[in-house]
């Protein structure tokens, strides 16, 4: 695996320059029950296809951003800055 990823700030870099933060999930609000909390903590959709996910540009601007990547081909459709 050595695909390229486009940091929204720095531009194209090798994937090894980044940290992977997993798929974008929704943190519960209010006071979730055990089931909701466990689902949030431990379950992932694990899609075979395009997934929205967090990436961290560790060897770069040190910013987190969101990428839309096809998990079956590693093709990154787009990346966007957060915050």
């Amino acid at each position: 695996m050595s695909f390229l990823l486009t940091c929204p700030h720095c531009g194209v870099r090798e994937v090894t320059d980044f940290g992977y933060g997993g798929e974008v999930t929704k943190r519960p609000t209010g006071s979730p029950d055990r089931r909701e909390l466990n689902t949030y903590n431990y379950f992932r959709r694990n899609v075979a296809g395009v997934q929205r996910e967090w990436w961290y540009h560790r060897s770069g601007c040190r910013a987190w951003f969101i990428a839309e990547r096809d998990t079956t081909t590693n093709e990154v459709h787009k990346t966007e800055a957060v915050g």
Binding site: G19, G21, Y56, R58, R62, W64
Partner: peptide
């Protein structure tokens, strides 16, 4: 990473 992630 943890701090900046939540910050973002």
């Amino acid at each position: 990473q943890w701090f900046t992630w939540w910050l973002a």
